[in-house]
Design a protein around this nucleic acid. Structure first.
Lengths: 339, 339
DNA sequence: CTGAAAGCGCTTACAG
DNA sequence: CTGAAAGCGCTTACAG
C-alpha cells in the first residue's frame, strides 16, 4: 500500500491524500471522509523513510550511554523517553562497551548525524576530550552532552553538581556530626567527576579552617576491589569518618572491615557517592550523595526538543542540576533496624 | 552534499558514484580513485533515509522493554547491542512505562513496523496476550518475543526457564538442606512467570512425595511492601524455609524479620528469584535463581539477524535458556562474613 | 566499464 | 478546494 494506491482507490490525487494524512492545506470535508475511509479500510500507514526524506527530518534522536557503569543509566533513559514520547520522537540507542574501542564508538555516533539517522544526539561520554566535543558542537545538528561540563565549548550540557554534592556531604559530616578528621577516598586521577568530588572535600575543609592533610586522602579507582586493597591503610590513620567518593568503594571498605572482624561499633562512619541501587540494602544502609539521573535525562531531552523547534541560534545551555544527600544508617543518623 | 554533486565534481554519473560507494558492479580503478578523492575531500556520507528508501530496509531493529522492573534489562540491551553492532545494525529503543497505557504502547510499537522505522522487533512484554502476539506474528516483518513462550503462536521466542529455575531451587532446599516444610510466596495470579515458578515448586514437591499444602503457599504481588505485609503470617506457619518467588519479596520478608527483632539464627532460610543487583549485597546475601539476561538479548538478536538474512520461512524458534541458582549466605551454605 | 532513466514513497509550491 | 509536476537523495536494471 502506498499513497498512490490510496489516491487511486479514492479517486483523488496523491497530493490530496497527503493533505488529509497531514491535516494540512484545505480539503473538502466530503473528500476527507472518502479518503479516510480507504485509509482505514486498508490500515494504511505512510512509509516513514519517504516522509522523512521529503521533510528532511527523522523524528529520532540518538542516545549514547555507557553500559558498563551499571544500571543507573536506565533512569536517564526514562527521563529522555518521557519527553520524547510526549513529543512524538523516537530514540536510537547506542552504548559504549568497555570492550570496544572508544574512538571507534565516537566515530560511530558521530556518523549517526552524518547519515541523517537522527535529528540530534544526546551523549553520555565523560571521557570525551574538549577538541572532540568541539567538533560535535560544529555539527549542523544539535548535540547535548551529559554528565560533565565543557566550559570552553559552545555546546549544551547537563550535569549533576558533583562538587556541591561532595560539599553537602562534608557539611553533614562536619556540622551535624562534628567530625574533624575525615578521610577521603578519591577516584582515578583522570576522572572529571573524581576531581570535582575531591575539590568539594578540600574546599569545605578549608571553609572550616581545617588543614588539608595528604595522609587522609587515599587514591582508589572507583572499584570495590581497589578499595578493599587500601582499606587497611585507611583504617590505620584512624579517621573519624571515611568519605568514599563512590558507593562501590564504600562497599569495598565496609566489606573489608567485616572481613577484619572489626565490630560495627568500631568502624568509622563510611559514606559514599552515587546512590547505587543496592546502597539502601546493604548493612549498614549507606548514606550517600544522589545524582538526579532521571532529571538529567529529562532536561537533556527538553533542551533537544527546543533546539529542534527553532531555538537554534541560542546561547549554549549549561545546566547543572542539584545533587542531594541521602541520609541512612552508615553515618549513624538512622539506627540500623537490625544489628 | 549529495551523490549528484559528487558525481558532477568527479565528472561521472550518479550511478558510478553509487557503485563506488557500495562496492558493487564494475568500476575502473582509475575512476574509483577519482571519485573516492572527492568523497573524502568533502567528507561525504550518503543520506541513510534515501538509501533505506531505495533498498527498502532500515538497518534498524526496535527493542521494547519495561523500565519499571528495574535495572536488569540493561543486560538484555547489552546482549542485543553486541550482536547488532557486529552486524552494522542500529537499535531503536522504546520503553514500557508503568504510567502509560499498555495498549497504547503496544499500538505504538506495532506501528514501528508499519511505518517502516525498523526491519524487525524484539519485544519484552510478558503481559501481552496470545491474540495480540498472534497479530504480531502475522506482520510481514520478523518479531522476537522475550521472556515467555507462546506455544500456540508461530513466533520466535526466547525465554528463561523459570519452571526449572524454581525446581533447581527446590532441589537445593530438599536435597542439600533436607527441608520438607517449605513455604512458597507466589506472585500475582495473572503473572506468567509467577505461575511457572509456582509449578516448579509444586511439581518438585510431588517428586519427593511431599503433599502440597495450601497453607504453605502465600500470595504476594512481587513487591517488597506486599511481602512485608504477609511476612508475619508466613512466620506463623513455622516453615523450615521460605522460597520467595522473587528477590523483592525475599527482601521484604527479611526486612520484616529484622523489624520484628527475630534473631538471625531463628529466621527460617529465605531464598529468592531474579538475582537483583543488590541481592549479593544484602545481609544475609541472598541465595537466588539467576536468569541469563545477557544471553536472552544475544540470542534474540541472533535470531533476528538470521530472519533478516533470509531464514524467513523457517519454523518458529522457541528458545528456552537455562536459569541457574546462585548460592549465597541466606540459605546457610555460605557463612556470613560478618554477623 | 559507464550513463540515462525509472523508481523508492512521500511532500509541497504552483496554478487553476 | 484539487491536481500535475518537481523534488527529496539514493539504487538498479538496462543498454551500450
Amino acid at each position: 500500500m502506498t499513497i498512490a494506491k490510496i489516491a487511486e482507490l479514492a479517486g483523488v490525487s496523491k497530493a490530496t491524500v497527503s493533505r488529509v494524512l497531514n491535516n494540512s492545506g484545505y480539503v473538502a470535508e466530503k473528500t476527507r471522509r472518502k479518503v479516510m475511509k480507504i485509509i482505514e479500510e486498508f490500515n494504511f500507514v505512510p512509509d516513514s523513510r519517504a516522509v522523512n526524506l521529503s521533510k528532511s527530518m527523522t523524528r529520532t534522536i540518538g542516545l549514547v550511554i555507557p553500559t558498563t557503569s551499571g544500571p543507573f543509566y536506565m533512569e536517564v533513559i526514562r527521563g529522555i523517553e518521557d519527553v520524547l514520547a510526549a513529543n512524538g520522537y523516537y530514540m536510537l540507542l547506542m552504548t559504549f562497551e568497555a570492550s570496544r574501542d572508544k574512538n571507534e564508538t565516537r566515530k560511530k555516533y558521530r556518523s549517526l548525524l552524518d547519515e541523517k539517522r537522527v535529528d540530534g544526539l544526546i551523549v553520555f561520554d565523560p571521557e570525551a576530550d574538549e577538541s572532540f566535543v568541539q567538533e560535535m558542537a560544529n555539527a549542523k545538528k544539535p548535540c547535548v552532552y551529559l554528565g560533565r561540563e565543557y566550559p570552553k565549548v559552545p555546546i549544551d550540557t547537563v550535569s549533576a553538581d558533583n562538587f556541591t554534592g561532595s560539599r553537602l556531604m562534608m557539611l553533614h559530616l562536619l556540622e551535624h556530626h562534628g567530625f574533624r578528621k575525615i578521610a577521603f577516598v578519591r577516584g582515578p586521577l583522570d576522572s572529571y567527576h573524581g576531581l570535582e568530588r575531591l575539590k568539594g572535600y578540600r574546599k569545605t575543609l578549608r571553609e572550616f579552617g581545617i588543614g588539608y592533610d595528604e595522609n587522609l586522602v587515599f587514591c582508589g579507582n572507583f572499584t570495590r576491589e581497589g578499595a578493599e586493597k587500601i582499606a587497611k591503610k585507611i583504617f590505620a590513620v584512624n579517621p573519624e569518618a571515611i568519605f568514599a567518593s563512590n558507593d562501590e568503594m564504600a562497599l569495598g571498605i565496609i566489606h573489608k572491615a567485616k572481613q577484619l572482624k572489626i565490630p560495627l561499633s568500631k568502624i568509622p562512619i563510611i559514606v559514599g557517592f552515587d546512590d547505587a541501587p543496592w546502597a539502601e540494602h546493604i548493612n549498614p544502609a549507606l548514606t550517600t550523595v544522589k545524582q538526579p539521573m532521571y532529571d538529567i535525562g529529562k532536561t537533556a531531552a527538553r533542551i533537544m526538543m527546543d533546539r529542534l523547534s527553532g531555538d537554534r541560534s541560542k546561547v549554549p545551555m549549561k545546566v547543572k542540576l542539584h545533587t542531594s544527600i541521602v541520609i541512612r544508617e552508615s553515618c549513624g543518623c538512622l539506627k540500623a533496624a537490625f544489628e
